[in-house]
Design a protein around this nucleic acid. Structure first.
Lengths: 123, 123
DNA sequence: CTCAAACTACTACATTTGTAGTTATTTGAT
DNA sequence: ATCAAATAACTACAAATGTAGTAGTTTGAG
């Protein structure tokens, strides 16, 4: 299943906040980007068509949808290409990049050190 | 500058192998995917239009192009969205995912442990 | 009960993307 | 010098994507 960028942005809502309606999703999207309700609804429709979300009930007359695919699964399928396209397929480069980029807090670093140590001992 | 997936695949060639012609790029692409020469040429034309590559000379009657943007710069600009869309914006999750995924060799792990240690000491 | 607001389903349309054909031109081998 | 092969430049087109309008339906407030 291949999702577009906008579709992924909407999926993010379902993944983070759990089941919700198109208008709820619209409210979230609106916070970061001026968008018509129908635009978001179209994306929701397409996500349903693609099988990425499914109807799980109603709330008043709104349809409530819920993610039908896990974020993990999507990540897994996209990561290899991403890695190839931007980091020459080398995850070490990506990780180094992340570390350099101040994207990791000291806590994160500690966490990862333990994580790595644990991984190594299991090999 | 926003590049499509196919455009990025072609950029990968310029980034990895340095300057080359459209037909050279076509040969590389053909290895992994049956594609007409003109298809690759179109992508090369679009990359030039977008300013991602530039002409640096000729070879026989072929035009030789070279990357005009660094892979690093592209990565940098795309990573935040990627992170947000697939890992809830949390790089720690991404790194953990990479580690779990057997995408890192023991060597890589050692390397990263040092990298992390070094980073921590600088904070 | 009534009616405006909210919501769904459907349609529309410009742009981007993947894919490749056509035409004209250049070049290198004979 | 000639001609086939390679290449450039341009054109074409279907599918996907971002964006939103319209028409019809449901509902909840008064």
């Amino acid at each position: 299943m291949k999702l577009s960028e906008f579709e992924l942005d909407v999926m993010q809502i379902f993944w983070e906040q759990g089941p919700c309606s198109a208008s709820a999703a619209h409210k979230v999207i609106s916070e970061s980007k001026k968008t018509a309700y129908t635009t978001v609804k179209t994306i929701v429709d397409r996500l349903e068509e693609k099988g990425a979300i499914k109807r799980v009930g109603n709330e008043g007359r709104s349809i409530v949808y819920s993610a039908a695919v896990k974020q993990e699964a999507m990540s897994q399928s996209v990561l290899p290409d991403f890695l190839k396209r931007f980091f020459g397929g080398n995850s070490r480069n990506l990780v180094a990049h992340l570390i350099d980029d101040e994207k990791l807090s000291e806590d994160d670093i500690e966490y990862l050190q333990h994580y790595l140590a644990n991984k190594k001992s299991k090999k």
